[in-house]
Every structure is written in C-alpha cells, then in structure tokens.
Design a protein around this nucleic acid. Structure first.
Length: 876
RNA sequence: GGGCCUAUAGCUCAGUUGGUUAGAGCGUCGCGUUUACACCGCGGAUGUCGGGGGUUCGAGUCCCUCUGGGCCCA
C-alpha cells in the first residue's frame, strides 16, 4: 500500500455526494482507469463475460442490480492486482428491436418491396393510434433497426457510466455488427462442416403473429381456458366417444390413442374407427403417454394439436394431415384422406378461417351431424406460447436448421451435463437448474428464425432445372468472405442474374436465432480468430455473471458452442444474480407496471446508494425493491465523507502520514487489530464471490468505528482540551485514524466507487480503484499487542454513560462531577485502559473510577455519578 | 406430477463447520441542535427463529414431516 500521498490534504468545507457521478465517471473515462491492458499474461488477467443487455427500450432496475454485483467483483479483482477484462455488449439483433422499430416508426416489412435509398420514416416515437403500418423494404427496415439500436445503446451507456460500472468502454460490442455477423457465420459454418448443424423438415412450433419458428428455450406454458368437446367416432360396434379441446383439428385427425393398460379401450386396439363429418378411417392405438384420467381417456391424434401429438406421430409412425397454415388459417387444400363428397363439403366451410372461427364452425358441423354430445365442458389447461407472444403456438411442418445440443443424443447430453459440473456455481445450487434443463431437452436447438433484423444464414441452395430448391449440399462461402448476406451476395461460380432462376441459386431466407450470436459473446468480445493472442489472454473467461432466468438459454447455449468449437468450457465460474421483487414479492416486470426507471432512482438517491442496496444482496437471492435500503446506502456514503473529513482535518497543513509505529495507545491498537480481522474476513468473502458479506463486515465495523471509536478519541486527536495528553498519545490517535481511513476507503471502493474516490482524491494521488486491496499485515504491525476486545468494552462503557444522561433527559454534553463504572469481572482491566478517553468522551469533570460489578448477571455496565447542572443557555 | 430455493423483530436482512443471554439497519418511542456529520447524534422497547417430531450434553443451524411463499420443468 504505497500509493503516494498529497503534500497537503484538500478537504472541502462541506463534503457532498452531489455531482460525484458525472465528475468521476468523466475522469475515469479520460484517465483510462478501467482500460484493459492486453499485454499482461493470462494468469494476471481476470476476464468477465458480461451479459449484453437487449438494447431496445429502457433499462430495468434488475440491470442495475445484477450489473452492480458484477462490478463489485470486477473492482475487487482489479484491486487485487488482476488486469480485469470487463467489456460491455449490446444485444441489438432480433425480435425486441424489430418490435420497437415497428412501434416507434410505424412501419412494417414487405419483402416484395425494393430498397428505397431516400426513405424517411413517417413517424419517430409519435405514431398515432390509428396509423396503419407503412410497408417498407427489408433493407430499409434493417437500417431503421440499426439507427434506433445505436440511439438506445448510447442511452444505456450513459446509465451504466452514471452507475459507475468499471467497464472498459473501448471494448464494447454489438450482436448485429459486421464482426458479430462474421463470428456467428464462422461458428455456424464450422458446425455445419462437423455435422453439428443440419436442416430437416420437422414439426415446428410456430408463432402466427410473429411469423416465426420458436425454439424450446423460448417456450412458456400459460394456463388458458379451454373446453372439452365430447365427440363420437363410429365403428361397427357402435360409437367411440372422445373429448377434445381442439375440435377444429378433426380434419387433421390421424388416429385415436389410449393407455395400453386402459381396460375400457383394450378391445379397440388394432381396430379402426371413422371420424364424424369427414368420414376418415383412423386406427385406434395404444401409447403410455395417453392419460386415462384426462377427458375420456382416449384422445385423437392430429397434425399437430400439441407437442404430445408430435411425440405420438413420431413414435407411432403416423401420417401427416396438415390443415393449418403459417398464417394460422385453415388451408385451402384438404388432406388427401378426406374423400367423401360430404367430407369435402364440410371442409370447404372451414377453409380460410382462423383457428378460433374454425372451432365455431366445426361445432356447428358436429351439431348438425349429431356427433357433438352435451355442452362443451370448460377446463383450464396449460397451453404453449412463445414467451414474447400472445397467441397460442401452432405446430407446422417446415424445413429448419438445427444445432445438436444433446436433445437427441445421449452422449452429447452426458458430456454437456459433465460440463455443468465443471463450472463453479455461485450459489452452488444453481447447478441443478442447468442439469434439469439439459436432462429435460427433447430436441435439438432450432436455429432458424423467420425474421429480418438478424444474422443471415451464410448459405445458398442450388435450383434444379424446374426451379425447385435443392436443400441437400448447400453452397457456402469461405471463411475469409464473411460476413455475407445470401440475399445480396452471390455464391462462387454463379452470377447475380442466376438468382431465383432454374439452374441458378437461392439464398437461405432465414436469420439465425439471436442466441446463436449471444452464445458467442466470449468469442466475440475476445476477438476469436481475429486476434489469437488476445483470445488466449482472455479465454476461457474467469466468470460469467447472469440471472437465473436465462440459465437455460444464454448460459447453456454458450456452453454448447464452446464445447463444440473449443472442447472446453467458455468460463470457469458462473455467478448468478437473483431477481428484484416488488414489495408484494412479485417479480418486477414491465407488464405489471411496477417498474422503476433506473436513472431516476440513481439521480434521486445517488449511485453509491443504489449500489449499496444492490450489493447487499447475495448472489442468487431474490431481493425486495427497497428504497429504504438505498437511503441507508446514501447515509453510509455521506458518513464516509464526513468521517474522512474529520480524520484528515488533523493533518492541518502538514502531510498525512501512515506510520504504524506511531500507534501506541491501547484503544488505537485495538481498533486496528479489529480492522485487520475485518480485512481478512472481507477478503475471504470476496474470494468466495460473496460481495454481500464483504460489505456487511466492512459496514458493521464502520458504524462502530464512527459511533464509538471516533467519539472516544476525538478529544485526544484534537490535542486534548483536558490537557495532560502527551504528544505521543495525540500522534497515536491520528495515526490510527489515518491508517483506518486508508483501509476503509479501499474496503468500500468496490461498493461506493464515487464517495471513496472523492475522499481518496482529497489526500492521495491516482485512483483508489487502481490502488491495492488492503491486507492485514500493516494493520497488525500497527496493532501490535492490541486487543480487539477493548473496543466493545470501551463502547459499552461509553454507552452506559450516555444512557445515564439520556434517562436524566439532559444533553449528552452535560458533565459528570465524577463517575464510577462498575463492570463485569475480567472487563476491569480493559475499561481501565481506556479510562482517559472515556473521561473526555463522557465528560467526566472529576475522577473516573472503574470497579468490578458485584451484580452476577449484569451484562451492562453500571454507572454511578453526579451530573453537573446544565449550563444556562447563552443568549446569542 | 418432478426438481430447486425460501420462511429469524412491524419491515429489509445477517447469523460461517451445531456451542454463553439470537444480531444490524429501517420503522417506532424518548432525549438531545456537541465545531466530522440535521441527508444528524444518543438511548429505550420489540422475537414460541413457520408448525410438529427426531438426533445430540447442547439445534435458528443437522435429519424427517406438514404448512405458507417463490421459481424452473413436465
């Protein structure tokens, strides 16, 4: 701890927190305080794979919360002498940005439109309610996305700088940048070459509103009202009754299914029945997923009503009879299985209807044929939704790209579970979240998205002489050509004129899932394949901080990609932050309208205050939104300023000195002995990624330090009004105060970066944030034989004297004529050692004597003494 | 239905491998305007550690069970 001292401390007359955020964040930027030095060897580097926030709209208080956790960790590591690689990224590609652009500018993509270089959007954030979206070309739309994302990113950066994140802003990346596109496409092509990426025609969950395929990780079950419709199928032996919530899919029915052990239906297995209205003959089959308790215990299997239908379809080898299109409406073409004139006529009535209307019409048809029995019975059941959507998903059959993630491959799954065990999780129990997810995967990672603002698949397809797409053996670019856009770029050996022509080529129209880029943040920020030396310096990363809600998406997919590409983990540790709950213990979210804007909070309470509230929460623990805690944080920061001013004021015009040898008084040694213990324990806590404990230890010491220790030594440090204070005793108090301050500023620096930096600047050169984390050795040297037990003993004695005055309802300033402290046996020597300071702090005019209490159960210290009458108030 | 977490003062939370009388801050009540601090200081009161059972000399802490809350997955 040899950071240089200023010749004379410059302490403001009235220290204040106001304006510190702007002043210091600007200074840190100018001085490169948090700039990453890439020349340091790997073992001295601490690298953090920070979550890139979605740059659409506004930041959530949850961002402030979890990023503060990361920042505390980063600052600790930096003070420990590690060169911290702490980049920030913006996740700007994908649906959220598209939605925001649509709403903000009042536009909508029409892929048939050509690019208009002079296009200006009709609105900018002021779209009237009546406005119907203006159709624009895909390229114009992408340009608007880029423009708006850049603006959002600027405002995010402002908030994060104001919050005091020690990010190296020169390392910022975007998930839509050319470099991100190059990285994602490169990783995809390599997975394609290794056979880890593949495309197949398969049932795909489809969001009708967003016109896109949805992956397992984006699914969400929501309870929805439905109704069992009791419908009769026909057989030679009479009717078979089924109950279904989706009668509109009757035309897509391919079989009935019941549980193999279900005695009611065992006689039917192997036979066929005929569907009502459409007259299609379907088999009755047995499968253990059929639930005897559900509905009639026998279900119809359709193409495809839900994911169980898909399982049955696959495992029972059933045909497909698709009737719902990607627009969510009934297809014009009836399934070939419907042959009768009546059946075709009935189908005709459904064509073009939405699922909702088709159900109504189907009910009419069934009623007319007499095959609907009784009133539909209302139930509530879970229905699959896209997590960002608001209509139930349909299942369509389509050609999509997938990446192997263990969902269909036991060996890969096992190795990914093993990777999870190699990660050190904070808190440890988060590992089970990961394991549950990997174990529960039912399919590979669906990579294709039918979106516009994303990274295109770097793939073209040949067209045969009939102009049909040949999906096998796609045309791919070389890595040095990346990034490419197959919609505008042309594959090797073809000319632009051949696009879409028989014998020519066609670009893959889809974009990669955003996680296909986000899962590469370690590679992206680490300059993979662009700067090998740099990559070696930061990869694998030391830690991945994130929230537990995205373990299944971001964390898992990042493991999948690193495992495939580098055959290792992308980072050694995962630090998982909890969520913010509102006072009713509900997760705060935009839809609930209980979100608070972070910048307003930061400005109201001060960044250090909000950081204090955030940092008080342990990793993984959900936390109540509590402005009261922020007020405490603010008080703590102000206290730090004031106590520092007090301590530094004793230097006068001479230089502050940090001289351990000058500490000679027992109480001064005791306080440093105690502080040495705090330093050790806080360091241990930080090493275990327990920033909350480190803060708590430092904070509780600090309150005692100001409430008791400062009061006790105040007079002595001033020079002793009561005379009879030796120069050595004065120097001892001052040295102890300065040594304490030096350590306390370092201990609080990760939590209160603004207040600590402010105080540091009064008397030190450089930044506290590049200063060394405190060690206990200097403190122990100064503490020598100091006994930490002296501190609570002296504090107790002081409190006892205060209590007498408080109960006598007199000012604390009131003096005792004389006083006798009766303390527990064993404590007498301790209290006597502080008698001089107690006498002045307690304002004992005459003798202060310390005796042993005879009261056996007395924990408290007895005080007897006569108080002087209060001085009459001086007229001003 | 399976898994994970959680329950400590009115509130928000500590309580490290089991070990004296369970702590902090807020809030509340009372006192006090003292030159570090009115964005203040000092002091007081406040707990069947969710319920029940068990292990142990000893349980807020370990085990079982029930109940409430939260999340993830079916």
């Amino acid at each position: 701890m040899t950071e240089p001292l200023r010749p004379v401390a410059q302490v403001p007359e009235k220290p204040s927190l106001d304006g510190l955020e702007d002043r210091w964040s600007q200074a840190w930027g100018e001085n490169g305080t948090y700039a990453f030095d890439r020349t340091r060897p790997r073992e001295q580097v601490f690298s953090i794979d920070t979550p890139p926030p979605t740059a659409s709209g506004s930041l959530h208080i949850g961002h402030v919360f979890s990023y503060t956790h990361t920042d505390c960790m980063a600052r600790y590591q930096r003070m420990r002498g590690r060169e911290v690689f702490y980049p920030m990224g913006w996740d700007d590609n994908g649906l959220p940005t598209e939605r925001r652009v649509q709403n903000y500018y009042g536009v909508q993509v029409d892929t048939s439109l050509p690019y208009d270089p002079d296009f200006t959007p009709p609105y900018a954030g002021d779209v009237p309610k009546k406005h119907r979206p203006t159709p624009i070309s895909r390229q114009n739309f992408v340009e608007l996305c880029l423009t708006l994302a850049a603006e959002d990113e600027k405002s995010f950066e402002r908030v994060f700088r104001y919050l005091g994140l020690s990010v190296d802003w020169a390392q910022t990346y975007q998930t839509i940048s050319p470099v991100a596109q190059q990285t994602s496409q490169r990783a995809f092509l390599r997975q394609l070459a290794r056979g880890e990426a593949y495309q197949i025609e398969a049932p795909t969950l489809w969001d009708v509103t967003f016109q896109t395929a949805v992956a397992q990780a984006e699914l969400e079950d929501r309870e929805r009202e439905g109704a069992y419709h009791r419908i009769s199928f026909h057989s030679a032996d009479g009717p078979v009754f089924i109950e279904t919530t989706r009668p509109e899919l009757l035309a897509a029915c391919v079989a009935l299914v019941a549980h193999p052990d279900d005695e009611r239906y065992q006689p039917l297995f192997g036979s066929t029945v005929t569907s009502p209205v459409f007259g299609v003959e379907v088999p009755v089959l047995a499968h253990q997923l059929a639930d005897p308790e559900k509905g009639a215990g026998i279900a119809m299997i359709c193409t495809f009503g839900d994911t169980t239908d898909v399982t049955w379809w696959r495992e029972l080898n059933l045909p497909t009879r698709t009737i719902i299109g990607r627009d969510g409406r009934i297809l014009a073409e009836p399934p070939a299985a419907i042959a009768s004139a009546e059946g075709l006529a009935a189908y005709e009535r459904l064509v073009g209807l939405t699922v909702f209307s088709a159900q109504k019409t189907m009910v009419e048809l069934l009623t007319e044929s007499g095959d609907l029995h009784g009133e539909p019975r209302k139930i509530s059941h879970p229905v699959k939704f896209f997590e960002k959507g608001d209509k139930p998903l349909e299942i369509v059959s389509s050609r999509q790209w997938y990446v192997r993630n263990g969902g269909r491959d036991a060996d890969l799954r096992e190795s990914l579970v093993k990777r999870g065990k190699e990660i050190t999780w904070y808190p440890g129990h988060m590992e089970s979240r990961y394991e549950n997810w990997v174990d529960g995967l039912t399919g590979d990672w669906l990579l294709s998205r039918q979106r516009f603002f994303g990274v295109p698949f770097p793939v073209w397809y040949r067209l045969n002489d009939a102009g049909e797409v040949l999906y096998d053996d796609p045309l791919v670019p070389t890595e040095d050509q990346l990034p490419i856009d197959p919609a505008t770029d042309v594959p090797e050996g073809y000319t632009p004129e051949q696009r879409g022509k028989p014998g020519g080529f066609a670009g893959d129209p889809d974009v990669l899932d955003t996680w296909a880029t986000s899962s590469l943040t370690p590679q992206l920020a680490g300059r993979w394949e662009r700067d090998p030396e740099f990559f070696e310096t930061v990869f694998p990363y030391d830690v991945r901080p994130q929230g537990h809600d995205i373990i299944r998406t971001w964390l898992f997919s990042t493991v999948v990609r690193a495992n495939a590409e580098h055959d290792c983990l992308p980072w050694h540790r995962a630090a998982i932050s909890g969520w913010i709950l509102d006072p009713d213990r509900k997760k705060m979210s935009k839809s609930k309208g209980n979100v608070v804007t972070p910048l307003g909070l930061l400005e109201q309470h001060g960044s250090d205050a909000v950081r204090y509230w955030s940092a008080s929460a342990r990793l993984g623990a959900d936390t109540a939104f509590d402005e009261g805690q922020m007020k405490i944080g603010r008080r703590l920061a102000i206290k730090l300023l004031n106590a520092s001013k007090f301590a530094l004021s004793f230097a006068g015009d001479s230089q502050v000195t940090l001289d351990p040898v000058a500490v000679t008084e027992p109480i001064d040694r005791a306080v440093l002995a105690e502080l040495a213990g705090v330093v050790d324990k806080a360091s241990t806590a930080f090493e275990a990624f327990d920033h909350a404990r480190a803060l708590e230890l430092s904070e509780s010491f600090f309150w005692t330090f100001t409430d008791d220790y400062l009061e006790l030594v105040k007079d002595r440090a001033y020079g002793g009004e009561a005379a009879a204070v030796s120069p050595e005793a004065i120097a001892s108090a001052r040295a102890a105060l300065w040594l304490s301050l030096d350590t306390l500023l370092r201990l609080f620096a990760p939590f209160l970066p603004f207040a600590t930096e402010e105080v540091w600047s009064w008397w030190r050169e450089g930044s506290v944030h590049r200063a060394a984390w405190p060690t206990s050795d200097t403190l122990r040297l100064a503490a020598a034989d100091g006994d930490p037990a002296l501190l609570p003993a002296a504090g107790g004695a002081l409190a006892a004297m205060r209590k007498v005055k408080s109960e006598a309802k007199v000012s604390q300033r009131t003096a005792f004529v004389s006083a006798e402290l009766a303390v527990r046996s064993g404590q007498q020597a301790l209290v006597a050692a502080v008698a001089g300071d107690l006498k002045s702090a307690g304002r004992v005019a005459g003798e202060l004597t310390v005796t042993t209490s005879t009261d056996a159960d007395a924990g408290a210290i007895g005080v007897t003494g006569e108080l002087l009458p209060p001085e009459p108030k001086q007229p001003k």
